[in-house]
Amino acid sequence: MSEEYLWDKTGEPDRDVADLEMLLGQLQFRQGRQPVRQPTRRANPAALWLAAAAVVTAGVVIPLSQRGAQTDWRYSARGLEARTLRTGQVIDTGGVSDARLESSFTGALQIESRSRLRLVASADKQQRFRLERGTIHAVIWAAPGKFVVDTPGARTVDLGCRYTLHMDEDGTGFLRVETGWVAFEWKGTESFIPAGAACQTKPQRGPGTPYFADASDALRAALERFDAAPGRATMAAALPLVRKKDAMTVWHLMTRVKSWERTEAYDRLASLVVLPAAASKDSIVRGETAAVDAAWNALDLGSAEVWRNWKRGW
């Protein structure tokens, strides 16, 4: 017999060894092969991850060159030991549907499967993430303005609340607020989204006009047209469709058209809420910040001062 063939497969093949290789090779482990028996018990997610690791890396992906400082954020998923996140690290959840990030000082994020989230900065003053795709559900207990999520279409600033943020592959984002309120900001365009409201963002366009989740389909369609081409005509098409509750939407329309186009929106807003003297039509048309903020405060959805303070501190 050829010992060399048994040893390193060189030399003349030993017939017995070659036959056994052929026969027993059927039992060889192969990545992705259907197992002979399939356990019906619930699979250990960590084991599922390991199996998937050979093809696609799921979980926390850490570019070695970007290893940053340790933070207070703890990443966990069922079956995986909780671990601390460093700045610069990316969570790519892949098929893992119960990933969670929590910071005792800031809040907790539930991250859905197929999501990609990067921790950009973590400091006392700011906790900043970037959501590249997927969905996060955030519950924030830090002071307003401290928790920020950047997206391709807007910066999302928590102003004390619970919300869901979704980001498509093409950069279109969608925000729905459950409690408190959230500010969306992109190159000077701001949207304030209170509890029960939602807002879309588009890359290179920024945040759209927010609306309450129970707004009519007609109003939503009109707002989409307005966001695509803000102006007097598209605004005029939306104004007749608003309810008293939609004053928040009207306020946004009013602040997004040119000064000489604001009168119509101002009149509609004044018919829905009692505006204070500080929010006079003339001062709004002139675009005075104090007047615009006073009109917002009249909506009774939270003080604009919180936002102004945050912006000053950023």
Partner: peptide, 15 residues
């Protein structure tokens, strides 16, 4: 140091 991708490579090498 927690690099899952690296552990995935180890899995491939030793499975």
């Amino acid at each position: 140091q927690g690099d899952r991708a690296a552990f995935g490579a180890i899995y491939q090498q030793f499975s």
